[in-house]
Design a binder for these strands. Sequence first.
DNA 1: ACCCAATTTAGATTTAGTCTAAATACAGAC
DNA 2: GTCTGTATTTAGACTAAATCTAAATTGGGT
Lengths: 136, 136
Amino acid sequence: MSFTAKELLTKRGVKLTSQRLVITEYLMQTYEHPTADEILAAVAEKLPMALSRATVYNTLKTLVDAGVIREVLTEPGRTRYDANTSEHHHFVDVKSGRIVDIPQEMLPDIQKVLGDKYNVKSYTVTFYGDLNEDSK
Amino acid sequence: MSFTAKELLTKRGVKLTSQRLVITEYLMQTYEHPTADEILAAVAEKLPMALSRATVYNTLKTLVDAGVIREVLTEPGRTRYDANTSEHHHFVDVKSGRIVDIPQEMLPDIQKVLGDKYNVKSYTVTFYGDLNEDSK
DNA sequence: ACCCAATTTAGATTTAGTCTAAATACAGAC
DNA sequence: GTCTGTATTTAGACTAAATCTAAATTGGGT
Ligand SMILES: [Mn+2]
Ligand SMILES: [Mn+2]
Ligand SMILES: [Zn+2]
Ligand SMILES: [Zn+2]
């Protein structure tokens, strides 16, 4: 049930290029939530050719639009990216900066609590605090 | 029970200057959630002297640190500011871009749902959707 | 193999935000 | 009310994230 990067891109109608593959693969195998610059640094060395910043940003936008990855906003001024596209939320460990996933099911159903004045299409919850030491 | 900007700054130990006063007053009387540039544009004309961008950013940081205002992050790359410092969350009307306040009490208690692995100090919920027409 | 639209590229540009060092202003001491 | 030291403000340079541009490249369908 778990797709390869190649299968995922094909399934979502994204044309295959080596840049798109390696960026998608990188995001699928990390549990961190890297920024565009972090992705560029990590992925550049895996590619035989040069990788331009414009391509990283173009690719990330393409992947977000295609639903292959999502943006994560936890702090001002830096957009992070996440290959986990299931509905989930984030916990920021304020000491280490680590960002861990919180599945939708861990939260009570707040989709409906706002009543009919607000037509909620989506929502995000970001928690800030300390992660107790037994962190995976 | 409602403080003036001057009283609030004094109470929080922030030295009074005309720039800080006019920025605080502006934020206290708007229900929008303006960016630094929007604040600069709105406030510059109310001051007899010039107002520099550095001062706007310095002042906003001072006010956030003193707890007079808070930052609001709803979209990548733009930090917004809010004189409503009560614990509350935000609803973004995706059509108009308007951001409205959602009081903490409207939500079920999700402070405690994460169990003891996560020590939650604060959390923010941002909703995206449509506001039904009777918007104030 | 050929072709062409889609993609990538390097570098310029934009924009939010920070930094610097000199000028100014507030607030407490007198 | 004046003095005075420190905090604040200023203009403008600078940094860093993200976007744009126009030329070069690519890869997938024929
Ligand atoms: Mn910026
Ligand atoms: Mn940026
Ligand atoms: Zn995540
Ligand atoms: Zn608010």
